[in-house]
Design a protein around this nucleic acid. Structure first.
Lengths: 176, 176
DNA sequence: GAGTTCATGTAAGTTGTTACATGATTCA
DNA sequence: TGAATCATGTAACAACTTACATGAACTC
C-alpha cells in the first residue's frame, strides 16, 4: 500500500522522501501514515523497478533527492487504482479493549471511556480545523475526493465519540 | 494485541487454539481476526511466560490441547485492561484508493464505488443478522460491551456505505 | 473410500516500526 | 554556539500472513 501512496503523491509533482513524509503527516495521517524507516527503502525499491526516477538537487541550499514518477510508474499506478477495491476489515484496536470491559469495575470503565473520548476529540478538533482551512483556501469541488476523505475522517471520529458517549451513559445509568 | 485477545477469551473458559480461531471468526472478525499461523505461536509464548497452562484431552474423540489462563495471566490481563486506551489511528485502506480517484475517469470511479458498496453491504447484512440472533437468544444487558461492539460494527459499516453513496451521487450528478 | 472438517504446527515471506547514525543548515 | 529542523539512511525487531505439512475423525 505504501508504494502506491508514494506513486499517488508523485502523480502531482516530484518530491523527496522527506516531503512525502510531510504530506502524509499533514494530509493523510488520519487514515494512512508511514515512518522514514519504510519510506526510504520503498523509494529505493520503486527506483529499482523503474517506477520512479531520482535526481539530486540543492533546493534552498539544502541537499535533496527528488523523485519523479516515470511513464511505467504512471501506468502501473493507474492500473492498480482502477481495480475494484477490496474492503479489508480494519483492526479497531480500541474495540478489543472495550470488548472485554465486562471484567473491569464500572468506575474504571467509565474513567477509561472518558479519557479515550477526549483523546479522539482532540484528533477530531485538529482535523476539523484543517477541514475548515481547506474550505476557506480551496475550491473543494476541485478536490472532491480529497475533501470527501476529510469528511470521512471527521465523521469517523465523531462516530467513535458518539458511540463511546452512548456506552458511557449506559454504564453511568447503572451506577445510580 | 493478539496475546491480550487470547487471554481475554480464556477469561471465560479454557479452550484450544482451534476454538480461539472459531471465536474470532464468529464473534470478533469485524474488528479483529488472526490466523492459525499467529495463534499457535502466541499460545506457546503465553505458556512459556506462565500466563496460560495447557493440558491435553480427548474431547468427543478428538485430540485437543486445552489452554487455561493462570492467576498470573489473569493479573497480567486485568492490569493491561485497566490502563487507558491509546487510540491508534487505524489504516483505512479504502481511503487510500479514493483519495487518488481524481486520476480515474468518472465512470470507473462510479463503478468501483458501487462494487465497494455492495461488498460492505454484504458484511453489514451478515453482522446485522448476527446481531438480531444475539438479541433473540441473549439478554443483551448481560453482554453490554460485547453487544455494544456489535452495534459499533453495524453502524461502522453503515457509515462507510452512507459516505460512499454520498460521494457516488456527487460524481453522478456531475456526469449529467 | 474420498472429501470435508477438526486439529496442530512450522518456515518463509510481508510490511511495517523503532532506534540509531550521520551531517548540513537555520535560528535564537 | 547550541538547539531545532531539514534530510537521508540502516539494522534490528515486531507482528503478523500465506502456504505448506501432518494426521485423525466424520460424513456421504
Amino acid at each position: 500500500m505504501l508504494e502506491y501512496i508514494i506513486l499517488g503523491f508523485l502523480m502531482k509533482e516530484e518530491m523527496s522522501g522527506y516531503d512525502l513524509k510531510q504530506w502524509m503527516v499533514n494530509c493523510t495521517s488520519y487514515f494512512f501514515d508511514a515512518s522514514f524507516g519504510s519510506i526510504y527503502p520503498a523509494l529505493k525499491r520503486l527506483e529499482e523497478k523503474g517506477h520512479i526516477s531520482c535526481h539530486e538537487v540543492i533546493e534552498s541550499s539544502k541537499f535533496k533527492k527528488l523523485y519523479a514518477i516515470t511513464d511505467v510508474g504512471k501506468t502501473y499506478f493507474l492500473n492498480w487504482l482502477e481495480k475494484p477495491i477490496a474492503f479489508s476489515k480494519t483492526k479497531q484496536d480500541h474495540l478489543v479493549n472495550f470488548y472485554f470491559y465486562q471484567y473491569l469495575p464500572n468506575e474504571k470503565a467509565i474513567s477509561n471511556l472518558k479519557i479515550f473520548i477526549s483523546e479522539v476529540e482532540e484528533l477530531l478538533n485538529r482535523l476539523s480545523n484543517q477541514k475548515s482551512d481547506v474550505e476557506k483556501e480551496y475550491d473543494v469541488n476541485q478536490f472532491k475526493f480529497i475533501y470527501s476523505a476529510m469528511i470521512y475522517g471527521v465523521n469517523y471520529y465523531q462516530f467513535i465519540i458518539d458511540w463511546c458517549n452512548k456506552l458511557l451513559k449506559q454504564i453511568e445509568g447503572e451506577n445510580l
